[in-house]
Each structure stands twice: as structure tokens, then as C-alpha cells.
Design a protein around this nucleic acid. Structure first.
Lengths: 122, 122
DNA sequence: CGGTAAATTAACTAAGCGGTTAAATACTGA
DNA sequence: TCAGTATTTAACCGCTTAGTTAATTTACCG
């Protein structure tokens, strides 16, 4: 209820059905019945609608309209926020120093790329 | 109940209290009362124990024993698994091609580092 | 208009989660 | 052994979540 956005995103990801839906959408836009097809043996269509609503409120997907269809597409931003939060823990899973070095090198590379191309990052 | 490991990890991360506990542990080992201190205005000690158990079952932390204390420490592996799952969606949040290029460069750099140094990875 | 397809809403249920208080356990140290 | 510190367990409560079926909405098409 107090749920901040990050919590909502992680909660949405904490379900294999929803992760499978995201995997499907990573291959391209799809409407509700198309997304539902692989799951209709296991659950009803309203259940699918609910899962999609969870993904939508978490900002992971967005729906548009095409006649009766509601084409859904993946929305990278929410997942980026989650990934960026995780990034601060990378040092804990990069177990050897030289791999940590490699990571620090990539950070430098990224900063360079960012400096050359873009604008302000929060 | 059917919860696969990845779902458990994401579910554990979907709570600001638990994320704050991880942040605390990223600064170093701490036992239960130490971890609990910032939260005892908002919740009881058993509530803290429960949160820690969620983190533990998700593999995000591990407890050891020191007399009556249960020192907890962060365990990077579970978070790495989650981060690696997310990695496949990176293309959806890397909005410009040159930043994608930069990322691909880092992947190459990592491979090189691994090849040259390596050693057994648990 | 009437029929059909696509998706959502309503109303309900069972189970899980986050919290509580009270009691129990584990260990130390005089 | 006894008192005290650290932590967990038990039993319970209210809310949320994931699912159901039935009904409704929305838009197309012949």
C-alpha cells in the first residue's frame, strides 16, 4: 500500500508467469490473447489480465489500443531502475579482484560513452 | 510454495525494510540486534527476525554463530543470479546505439579478463 | 441491428505476508 | 546454578494476492 516503485517492480518480477510474459514481450509487441495463449491450460483469461495489470502498474509494460485489442509492449525503464539499484551490490558478486578491475574499467568506458553522447543522468 | 529460487529472491527484494537491511550489511557483518536498531521504532524484534529469515531463504544473506549472536553477512550469489536474469533485458533500457556499443565493449573486456586470470569460480 | 471477438470488471475464496504479543530457547559469565 | 542477553518460535490478526466463474464492456463486421 505504501509501496514505492522499486518494491512494486521487484514484486512484479517475483512470479514465473509474469517473467514468462516479459520474455514473450521481449520478442515483440503482443495483445492479451496472444500473451495468454501459453497459459490458458494453467489459468483463465481474467487471471492473465490481472498479471498484466501488475506488470503495467510496475511500469514494466504499457498497453495501447488497436480496435478491441490491447497490444502490450515491454517498457525498459522500470527494469533499468531495478538493475541500477542492484548495481551497487555488484562488488559482492564479483568475487576476484581482477574481475573487479575489469568491472571498474567498464564503468570508465561507460562514463566516456555517456559524456560523448548524452545529457544529464539523474 | 512452488516458489522457484529466482521468484524468492525478487520477492525478498520487494520490501524497503529488507533492502535497507541489505544496505546495512553491505557496510559489513552485523548481528540481529545491530541490524534491528534502526527499525525498532517501526516494528518489533520478531518482525526483524522474520525479514532476516526471508532474506536468508532467498540466499541473499547467511547467518553464522558467535555465542548468542547471529552475525549476518551479505551473500552476493543470489543477487548475481537476479542481476544476470535482468541482463537479458538490458537492450530495452539502453536507449541509444552508442551506449549499447559501450556495453558490448565491456562484455568483451570482461571475457578477456576472465580468460587471462581466471581460476576456479565457485 | 445482431453477432462475435477481445478484454475487463465484479464478486468471491483460499492462501500468503507482515505485523503483533507472549513464551521459549540458547548461550555467557559471575 | 542463576541472571541476563540475544534470538527465535507460537499463535494469532488483518490485508493483499492469485485464482475462480459469471457478467459486462468495447469495438468490429456482415
Amino acid at each position: 500500500m505504501i509501496h514505492d516503485h522499486l518494491s512494486q517492480t521487484f514484486a512484479a518480477l517475483a512470479d514465473p508467469t509474469r517473467r514468462a510474459m516479459l520474455a514473450r514481450l521481449s520478442k515483440g509487441e503482443a495483445n492479451v490473447t496472444e500473451i495468454a495463449k501459453p497459459f490458458l491450460k494453467e489459468m483463465s483469461l481474467p487471471a492473465v489480465t490481472k498479471h498484466l495489470k501488475v506488470l503495467e502498474r510496475a511500469g514494466l509494460i504499457s498497453k495501447s489500443r488497436d480496435a478491441q485489442r490491447r497490444p502490450c509492449r515491454l517498457n525498459g525503464e522500470a527494469m533499468r531502475n531495478a538493475a541500477e539499484w542492484m548495481e551497487q551490490y555488484r562488488v559482492f558478486w564479483e568475487e576476484s579482484f581482477d574481475r573487479l578491475d575489469a568491472y571498474l574499467a567498464t564503468v570508465t568506458a561507460k562514463k566516456k560513452a555517456k559524456r560523448s553522447t548524452n545529457g544529464p543522468t539523474k
